[in-house]
């Protein structure tokens, strides 16, 4: 019989402070919840809760500012990078980050993300790629795979009618403005640890005024993939990873130095 006395015991893991107390509204097994938790952990560790600003986008995470207990605001569909640009330029001490899905960033908001990167805006974008439109019920996203079912590609996505999936990191890493562009995943604990490292490095790049940082996170959407959560992770590994290889697509020298520092610290 062990005595469970949390208050006396050492905490190996606990819900980050930067997260509010009420539960997420996401579906069971949704990747957004994992990524929100990682962002909150990073903000706690970097001690920037008083400077952080959540620039929400439109999608399942439309109310993300309710889940973080620091300043936040809504932006119109696809426009979060522009909203964040203005906040950073008007109040450079703040640490705005956009949280966007694949519809928000890679469909309607393509121009905004490309130009925020091209200008090298000192903001951070966390881009959750689950290859589907979640909030509106499972339509095709720009990152929906060829042959993949969605409610708007009933027979599976055909290029003749619906074109090809977009690899955002590869595209944006050709621009000079970004300081750090990486693609990570949350399909298992080890991947989650790496995802957190990338998100933390992205925020540290912003804090060091090194330019735009973007982390694409491959994330499961069990409900709209029509796969229950545990199998959704397998589906992600089997189908998303080949199309969207993980890795750091752009790391300017100054960010590489930040990485070395963190290993020594």
């Amino acid at each position: 019989m062990t005595l469970d006395t949390p208050e006396l015991d050492t905490v190996l893991y606990h819900k980050p402070e930067a997260l509010e107390d009420y539960p997420f509204h996401f579906c069971p097994g949704c990747g957004h919840g994992i990524v929100f938790r990682l962002i909150a952990e990073v903000i706690d560790e970097l001690k920037i809760k008083e400077r952080a600003v959540c620039v929400a986008s439109i999608g399942c995470t439309v109310t993300s500012y309710h889940y973080f207990n620091f300043d936040g605001l809504e932006s119109a569909h696809g426009r979060a990078p522009a909203v964040a640009t203005a906040i950073k330029r008007c109040r450079p001490n703040l640490v705005p980050f956009t949280y966007q899905g694949d519809g928000d960033l890679a469909a309607i908001g393509t121009a905004e993300i490309v130009h925020a990167c091209a200008r090298g805006e000192n903001i951070t974008t966390i881009f959750a790629n689950n290859a589907i439109y979640g909030m509106t019920g499972g339509q095709m996203a720009p990152t929906t795979l060829l042959g993949m079912y969605s409610t708007s590609t009933p027979g599976g996505r055909q290029p003749s009618r619906a074109g090809y999936p977009i690899r955002v990191c590869e595209m944006l890493s050709t621009l000079d403005g970004p300081a750090y562009v990486a693609r990570v995943s949350v399909h298992n604990p080890a991947a989650v640890r790496k995802a957190k490292q990338a998100i933390k490095l992205a925020f540290r790049a912003q804090l060091a005024n090194l330019g735009m940082s973007l982390v694409e996170v491959l994330s499961p959407c069990p409900t709209n993939w029509r796969v229950e959560p545990v199998k959704a992770m397998d589906w992600l590994v089997e189908h998303l990873l080949p199309q969207y290889p993980l890795g750091e697509y752009k790391v300017i020298p100054a960010v590489a130095d930040l990485k070395k520092e963190s290993r020594r610290a």
Partner: peptide, 28 residues
């Protein structure tokens, strides 16, 4: 073992992980 794998994968930040700070009570 307190590896926190469960907490890392939890999409709802529902899991906390602790380590006992002292040896188990004699009865255990």
């Amino acid at each position: 073992t307190g590896c926190t794998a469960c907490a890392l994968i939890c999409p709802d930040a529902a899991i906390s992980v602790y380590r006992h700070s002292r040896v188990l009570s004699p009865a255990a």
